[in-house]
């Protein structure tokens, strides 16, 4: 379980990116994080992987207090969490296979195990044919699927996706969502930050809406409210 207890994050010289946020996310849930740019979605995700520390409050992932975690133990936390980035963050000098196997190499798995597991995951995301391609030889959707494969190959209990469909066309976005839904079905907690109203409204999953660093809505079968979408468009 993920728990935020009165978490505030203030960046130096700025207003609060998150203000007194308290929320619980159960294991195996699929949660959308929505809100306009600057609402605190990315800050929320960065706090979870201890990329940044909260200014106030505590964050728990199961029994781990993320806020007080020793720097030398951060990597252990990150092995429990797979992260998918909007800009993919792939190593351009490595093939799809090598990028995905990175998630297992860092765990010290044997070559045989890496090979078998990576092929399984590439099959799941539909990239087994392109395993020897370099990122620059892939489409945006394929790069994002590579990123997802890398995030899930180590079998994390939580998957964070920071606007994974932000750079993709509608059809490819739905393909990515299908993959994320499949991953949730096997028991992984999925938290996805998105601006994509179509996806949020169609999937009808739990939706947490952030604005000015505060949670303004937390709905079990949430949707993108038209007013919010309009406001978001005006702000961006």
């Amino acid at each position: 379980m993920i728990r935020f207890d009165n978490v505030t994050k203030r960046f130096f010289g700025h207003t609060n990116a998150l203000s007194d946020v308290s929320v619980e996310i159960n294991n195996g849930e699929f949660v959308f994080l929505i809100g306009p740019s600057g609402a605190g979605k990315t800050t929320f995700l960065r706090l979870l992987i201890r990329d940044i520390l909260p200014t106030k409050g505590t964050i728990f992932i199961d029994d781990w207090n993320v806020s007080t975690l020793k720097t030398s133990h951060i990597y252990i936390l990150r092995r429990k969490i797979g992260t998918v980035f909007q800009d993919f963050k792939l190593l351009i000098d490595r093939t799809v296979f090598e990028n995905v196997s990175l998630g297992l190499e860092i765990l010290g798995k044997s070559s045989k195990e890496i090979s078998s597991r990576v092929m399984d995951v590439l099959e799941l995301v539909g990239l087994s044919e392109k395993r020897n391609n370099f990122p620059l030889q892939l489409s945006a959707g394929e790069m994002q699927r590579t990123g997802i494969a890398r995030a899930i190959v180590g079998g994390p209990s939580i998957l964070l996706a920071d606007e994974p469909t932000g750079n993709l066309d509608p059809q490819t976005s739905w393909d990515i969502l299908d993959i994320l839904s499949e991953i949730q079905k096997i028991g992984t907690t999925v938290i996805m930050a998105t601006h994509n109203a179509g996806i949020v409204n169609n999937l009808k999953k739990r939706t947490i809406c952030l604005e000015h660093g505060k949670i303004i809505r937390d709905e079990v079968k949430g949707r993108y409210h038209i007013a919010a979408k309009l406001k978001e468009r005006l702000s961006s």
């Binding site: 992987i49 963050k89 990175l102 998630g103 860092i106 995030a151 180590g154």
Partner: peptide, 8 residues
């Protein structure tokens, strides 16, 4: 990237 994916 290595740090983010959990490399020690």
């Amino acid at each position: 990237i290595l740090k983010l994916v959990g490399a020690s």
